[in-house]
Design a protein around this nucleic acid. Structure first.
Lengths: 304, 304
DNA sequence: CGCTGTGATAGCCATGAGTTATGGACGTCC
DNA sequence: GGACGTCCATAACTCATGGCTATCACAGCG
């Protein structure tokens, strides 16, 4: 039914040398082994491939018919092997970088430059992941490294480096009463306690602890937040805030993505700053991944 | 180094089914066997071909790269097999008919018709063989059946059927004294004893007993013949006789090939008639060979 | 909770591909 | 003409491999 590639190699060698002994030493096997294999091949095909005269070995018509096919298959296998190796190195040099929204803040070019310097062969690929996955693709392996907001669910499964630490703002419709209150504040801020009764836009439930974090559950003294809607992208957030469905906490660096038209953002007193990190799976020891994390640590040291 | 075709089959099956279990039953092997083989293939190539998630199996980028090559090789093997089978049937239907000179006497068409009747698929091929080989290619296997003159060297190696039995003539230059003697003979013949001292044209030494036969050694009472030259074809014989190098014995049916211009042929008294046979190797039991011999026997029964 | 379906693992066995040693048929050389 | 060398085939053995069954671990589902 099938052939072993080896048998084809043996066959072509004997066909080229027209001698079992010489072919055997060219193939680095013993002559009886070669004889036997050729016999097995002939038996399998039900034909005679070589005419073993006392003094000479020569191809039969059938052998002649097989030879070009055998050569073609061997060449095809060579090609297949190189294709596999190429795919493998391409894969080794590819780094899939997951992110929810563009991390901005000049982070991507800064890290890219550091990666390029150490690993010019690297081929980083940027990948947008829905906000519903707080690990930005790490959890299901679709990203090698990712820009994530802390805290991560299952945080001990990951290794990470914080690259930005920024106060959180609240996004409001521009006519909102709290906007005026902030304007009258000495620092232009609002207290989070003033937001307790506001309807909030939340991440999808799958986001787990991250959803809680952006609702600032820990700063509510045990009170349940009112959920005004679920959003899974900057665009949705803008629309929902402008439409009066609720307010939403934002990292400072993300404000430009949401603040326009009828939406403003105001700093909030009494909640912890947001932390953006570059993360990877804890057990991932691949060179490029570690290099990207190292770059993140360097950049993080200067920006935080 | 090489692959077993089976592994490629297994690989493509799993790639198509994206399930080891289903692929295994499609391949009529157990699921563990399939798992193991795929692992071995991956180990051999040093790459991961499938990503086995708990719930799903999918091709890696490397697997994707291998798949088309694997398919191509399987297709190539299919093609190779059909090529071999075609060559085999072509070979089975081919009958190489060896002959020294054209046997003439209407034998070829008569036998051809009988062969066609029984085996319309047969593809007889006529092959001219030098007179130096009295077996007309049977000895070295280059002919399957052959028109030969008896006696054959190693006669027990062959099976044969006599298809013509004819008096032998002697070819002479037209001015030769024996031509006149024959003309005055009551039966228009010469006695072989009259030829004892003539120079004879002989077959090459390799022809063995056949050379002796056409020198009619047995009718010389122990006297050695004088050899006027060596000939290996009808054309050479004509030239040599016409040129006076010597005389030569001929089968009646072959006379037309030699007798023209300055060469005549005269019946000889005192030597046995020539016997033309169709022969094959004794141990050759192939259908077409036996059929041709049977046809020869039928035709021989009517002509002898 | 147990049931089902999937892939991996373990242990067993037959086969297959390799080895060395040897045999038989020719050529060749002294 | 006998000794030897060459070449392919055969024999006997070893060990890896490909197959099997039985079983486990885990996820999804009723």
């Amino acid at each position: 039914m099938d052939v072993h590639g080896r048998d084809l190699r043996y066959f072509t060698s004997v066909a080229e040398e027209l001698s079992f002994t010489r072919a055997a030493e060219r193939l680095f096997v013993s002559q009886p082994a070669l004889s036997k294999q050729i016999r097995m091949l002939e038996k399998q095909l039900g034909v005679v491939l070589f005419e073993r005269d006392r003094r000479a070995v020569r191809l039969t018509a059938v052998g002649e018919a097989l030879l070009p096919h055998a050569r073609a298959m061997l060449a095809a296998w060579e090609a297949a092997q190189t294709a596999v190796q190429e795919a493998r190195t391409a894969e080794r040099h590819t780094l899939v970088i997951g992110m929810s929204t563009s991390p901005g803040r000049g982070l991507l070019p800064a890290l890219r430059a550091r990666l390029d310097f150490r690993h010019p062969e690297a081929r980083p690929i940027l990948r947008q992941v829905n906000w519903a996955d707080p690990s930005a693709g790490l959890a299901d392996g679709s990203s090698d490294v990712a820009y994530v907001w802390l805290p991560l669910p299952d945080e001990d499964r990951y290794q990470y480096a914080v690259v930005a630490r920024e106060p959180r703002l609240v996004a409001l419709p521009d006519g909102h009463p709290l906007a005026a209150r902030a304007a009258s504040d000495s620092e232009g801020m609002v207290d989070f306690s003033d937001l307790w009764d506001e309807p909030f836009l939340a991440l999808p439930p799958e986001a787990g602890p991250l959803r809680d974090y952006w609702l600032a559950l820990d700063a509510r003294d045990g009170r349940q937040p009112r959920i005004g809607g679920v959003v899974a992208s900057a665009e949705e957030t803008h629309e929902a805030v402008a439409g009066g469905q609720g307010v939403a906490l934002l990292a400072t660096g993300n404000a430009p993505l949401v603040v326009r038209d009828k939406v403003i953002a105001v700093p909030v007193r009494g909640i912890s700053p947001a932390q953006l990190a570059v993360a990877a799976c804890r057990d991932d020891k691949r060179t490029l991944v570690l290099a990207y994390l190292a770059a993140a640590r360097e950049v993080g040291a200067t920006t935080c």
